[in-house]
């Protein structure tokens, strides 16, 4: 016979379970429902009419004159393009730096580490504020170039740390073994180090890509009002058109969840949490 204590514990477990699921999925459900709610009169718990007309409008398949509704396709393509360029620039700076930090005894290493850690230790918003005044002088404020530079800044630090720990994880004796059978340092890098580092470098690129795709604060200061990325379009829609903002929200959420859950095993917990 099962004791009273058992039933008490079981009902507490069940309560925790239901409550957790409600809290976890409530906000996501709200977002999903709003993205398909064509009619939702208060105080109904669910929309009266469900359809994809806002999706069609957002994706430019259907013309719309609703307030706040514009095709998000240009912003979407712009966001993707910015993210791709950001990945290319960030990784071409981060891979050599990460390699150097991992495999060389660099003088003043502590100072360098400090420099590369600072951006994660302090709030970044004041940096964006001052970059705005600097970029205004340089004619980069409100330009795609300016936005890319800010995204590179946000992604680079993570990029450096992830690539450096990737290279660190490759034992030196594997490279030395290649040298001992006649490979010069370039060949050893290309044939041994690079293939072994590939998964980590790919994870790092994906991470930088998603970070750029989701970046809001830096773009808000540097890009507005001329450079509209997907997160900024979401922001400007959220005040006027709930459905529209929700569609963009779902569009941003899906790649983030898919890619991050794919690469999270390769990354330190701290980095995964540092995004957004």
């Amino acid at each position: 016979m099962k004791s009273k204590k058992y039933y008490f514990k079981f009902s507490m477990d069940l309560l925790l379970f239901v409550l957790s699921l409600l809290i976890l999925f409530g906000p996501m459900l709200s977002l999903a429902l709003w993205s398909v709610a064509e009619q939702w009169y208060w105080p109904n718990l669910l929309p009266q009419k469900v359809g994809f007309s806002y999706w069609a409008q957002a994706l430019g398949l259907k013309m719309s004159f609703a307030i706040g509704a514009v095709s998000i396709v240009p912003a979407f393509l712009r966001s993707i393009a910015i993210a791709v360029v950001t990945v290319v620039i960030s990784m071409s700076i981060a891979i050599p730096a990460g390699y150097a930090l991992a495999k060389f005894k660099v003088p003043f290493a502590s100072l360098l580490l400090l420099l590369f850690l600072m951006p994660n230790a302090f709030p970044q918003q004041p940096i964006f504020v001052n970059l705005l005044s600097i970029f205004t002088k340089w004619g980069l404020a409100g330009t795609v170039t300016g936005v890319i530079l800010v995204h590179v800044l946000v992604g680079l630090v993570y990029g450096i740390w992830i690539t450096s720990s990737t290279f660190k994880a490759i034992p030196n004796h594997l490279i030395e073994a290649a040298r001992s059978v006649g490979a010069d340092s370039r060949t050893a890098f290309l044939k041994i180090t690079l293939p072994l580092a590939a998964p980590g470098l790919l994870a790092s690129s994906v991470f930088v890509f998603i970070t750029s795709l989701d970046e809001f604060t830096g773009t808000f200061f540097i890009g507005l009002p001329f450079v509209n990325t997907l997160p900024l379009t979401l922001y400007s829609a959220s005040g006027t058109n709930m459905q529209f903002a929700s569609v963009i929200g779902v569009l941003l959420l899906i790649p983030s969840i898919i890619f991050m859950s794919l690469v999270q095993k390769l990354l330190k917990a701290e980095y995964v949490g540092g995004m957004g």
Partner: peptide, 15 residues
């Protein structure tokens, strides 16, 4: 963890 803050903000906005 994987959902960016801007989307979280929008979710909370409606929720």
């Amino acid at each position: 963890i994987f959902i960016p803050f801007v989307v979280v903000a929008q979710m909370m906005n409606s929720f």
